[in-house]
Simulated assay, not measured.
Amino acid sequence: MIQYQIEENVTLEEFRAVLLNSTLGERRPVDEPERLLAMLQHGNLIVTARDNGKLIGVSRSLTDYSFCTYLSDLAVNQDYQKMGIGTELIRQTKLATPKAKLILLSAPQAVGYYPKIGMTKWEQCYVLDDVNNLK
């Protein structure tokens, strides 16, 4: 039985493993442990899915618990995908921040997933990778 909970002490090794075992590892700094550790330390809402103690899914967010919740990382081990675990991780994240709008940027492979589970697509998102690009 999969257990969902809010956790504050997900280990670096567990987090890295779930990223690598999902498609999200392709777009995260999995070979930079110091950055992964900072991601864990500064994400202020981490919801996990565990199967007999093994971390199989994670929702890592930054939130003010009032206006917005940015769900930065949603990763589910590929062996457990298509079982509703991602949807439940999103549900648990939203339940923890009921007044806040939940916002995420989709991985290219998951663009079709979010509308299917009831999320609304917005066209107004912008990204800045390099401060030197500001004019």
Rank of each mutant, 00 (worst) to 15 (best):
E14K: 06
F15D: 04
A17L: 10
A17K: 14
V18K: 00
V18A: 02
L20N: 10
L20M: 09
L20I: 12
N21F: 04
S22W: 00
S22M: 04
L24D: 08
G25E: 04
G25W: 07
G25T: 05
E26W: 02
R27H: 13
R28W: 07
R28G: 06
P29W: 02
V30W: 04
D31A: 06
E32C: 14
E32S: 15
P33C: 08
R35G: 05
R35K: 13
L36W: 04
A38V: 08
A38T: 13
M39D: 03
L40V: 03
Q41R: 12
I46E: 02
V47T: 08
A49Y: 03
R50Q: 13
N52D: 14
N52E: 12
G53A: 10
L55Y: 00
I56H: 02
V58D: 01
V58F: 00
S59D: 05
S59A: 15
S59L: 01
R60M: 15
S61Y: 08
S61A: 13
S61L: 09
L62P: 05
T63K: 06
D64S: 13
D64P: 15
Y65E: 09
S66P: 03
T69P: 12
L71V: 13
S72N: 10
L74R: 00
L74G: 01
L74C: 04
A75K: 05
Q78S: 15
D79E: 15
D79G: 07
M83F: 13
I85W: 01
G86S: 10
T87C: 11
E88V: 09
E88D: 09
E88C: 08
L89G: 02
Q92C: 12
Q92T: 11
K94I: 14
K94A: 09
A100C: 06
I103P: 02
I103N: 01
L104H: 03
S106A: 14
